[in-house]
């Protein structure tokens, strides 16, 4: 990655489900190329044998016992939805992948 990679902006935007205008695509492509170029600094580091950190501290076995707690009233499931029917959120018919 010595040369800044070009993001396939159409592919990534589709993967992220974000519709971008043609102008946004141009601007973002250039800005992201800049940023990715800056990320190249990382390649200079030797990370052989280094454990990745998903969290700042290593803690294990944080869990809850299987005891019921409070529920929300069913109205909260649809309270902020743009479209509802029969106490459920309504979406255009889902065919195959979404």
């Amino acid at each position: 990655m010595s040369e800044a990679p070009q993001i396939d902006i159409d592919y990534v935007a589709r993967l992220a489900r974000v519709e971008l205008s043609p102008e946004e695509k141009v601007t973002y492509s250039a800005q992201l190329a800049d940023i990715l170029g800056y990320f190249d600094k990382l390649n200079a580091v030797d990370v052989d044998g280094i454990e990745p950190s998903a969290h700042p501290f290593h803690v294990v076995n944080v869990w809850a016992e299987d005891v019921p707690g409070e529920c929300l009233p069913k109205e909260e499931a649809i309270r902020h939805a743009a479209k509802t029917k029969d106490e459920q959120v309504m979406v255009p018919k889902v065919v195959g992948d979404a």
């Binding site: 935007a13 589709r14 489900r17 974000v18 519709e19 499931a77 649809i78 309270r79 902020h80 939805a81 743009a82 479209k83 959120v89 979406v91 255009p92 018919k93 889902v94 065919v95 979404a98």
Partner: peptide, 18 residues
């Protein structure tokens, strides 16, 4: 879908998201 802004211009689920 559930609680965030929904575009009035969506025609199917994919465009609803995007």
């Amino acid at each position: 879908v559930r609680y965030s802004y929904r575009s009035p211009n969506a025609t199917d689920v994919v465009s609803l998201y995007s």
